[in-house]
């Protein structure tokens, strides 16, 4: 019965020797730790010091300094908090919405089921990045907090997950133990949380990791476009400053400024991608069989 439950525990032990999942996890963990403790270890001083403008990387300034002579490394470390915070909350909301609607769609039949299905399909078809930009533009002047921004981002991320979860639920809801629960007249929440949820949990975990890429790309993109006002050390905003405000692209000796921001963005997203790939290989035996 609990093939997938076994899969889950197996997955956790396999985690030890799935290199991809492990490396991805380490990268994400590194940035999470940076987000939590970074600012106590590398304090940020935003005082401008024009004599130190665009200093090349050195021991004192590992990533060099920016237009105002502020240490880039310190900005990256301090910005990790909002970058990680925003993408994690966005992924969390996306997974939450996706899972709830996915389970509902998979479990419910009749009119309500069709309605949920229609909602999922509409969100699947509408191109998410343009839609996100429109919403961001509308709310751009209203000083949204982190949760509100995350919700706007999550709104355009959840649909693919909901579709997968609903397919998964549909395939397991016909299994005997759920039939048994139904015959015993168990309440809906019991069936959903005790019978169905544990079986879709691995998919949710894999998807949380997969959403991270989308969430990071979307939030950094929004910040980069200046469509959300936020902490100036958020990497997207830093990149915007670097490219447009400070014109670093046109200043040869300022190359390190955008370079280190971009490097960190790519490394973090890469961590999310291989973490998700590794988890998927672990939980999806068919994929693993081909390796």
């Amino acid at each position: 019965m609990s093939e997938l439950r076994i899969n889950l525990t197996k997955g956790i032990s396999l985690f030890k020797y799935n290199k991809k999942a492990f490396i991805g996890f380490i990268i994400i963990l590194f940035y999470v730790l940076m987000a939590i403790f970074g600012r106590y270890i590398v304090p940020l001083s935003l005082e401008s010091n024009f004599s130190e403008r665009y200093l090349a990387p050195s021991l004192k300034h590992p990533f060099g300094t920016d237009y105002f002579g502020i240490d880039i490394f310190a900005q990256i470390v301090n910005g990790a908090r909002t970058v990680i915070g925003l993408s994690m909350t966005s992924s969390f909301f996306a997974v939450l919405i996706g899972t709830i609607l996915g389970i509902l769609r998979g479990y419910l039949t009749g009119k309500i089921g069709q309605l949920v299905d229609a909602i999922i399909s509409i969100f699947l078809v509408i191109p998410s990045f343009p839609a996100l930009l429109i919403m961001a533009a509308i709310f751009a002047d209203s000083n949204l907090n982190m949760v509100q921004i995350s919700l706007i981002v999550a709104l355009w991320l959840w649909a693919p997950l909901a579709k997968q979860v609903s397919a998964q639920v549909m395939s397991i809801k016909s299994k005997e133990f759920i039939e048994a629960s139904k015959m015993l007249n168990m309440p809906l929440y019991y069936i959903v949380f005790k019978d169905i949820f544990p079986l879709v949990a691995p998919y949710i975990l894999v998807n949380f990791a997969m959403q991270l890429k989308g969430a990071m790309e979307f939030t950094i993109g929004l910040m980069f476009l200046g469509l959300a006002k936020f902490d100036s050390t958020h990497w997207g905003i830093m990149l915007n400053y670097a490219l447009y405000q400070a014109g670093a692209l046109y200043t040869p000796r300022a190359f390190h400024y955008p370079f280190f921001i971009i490097l960190n963005i790519i490394l973090l997203i890469y961590g999310g991608i291989i973490f998700a790939q590794g988890l998927e290989e672990t939980f999806n035996p068919k994929l693993r069989g081909h390796e």
Binding site: E217, L239, I262, I266, I273
Partner: peptide, 18 residues
């Protein structure tokens, strides 16, 4: 391929422009 997927398209565009 995985690394490329980790590069947001707009970042790549900036790099190419640069």
């Amino acid at each position: 391929s995985s690394i490329i997927q980790a590069i947001p398209p707009f970042v790549l565009a900036v790099l190419i422009l640069f």
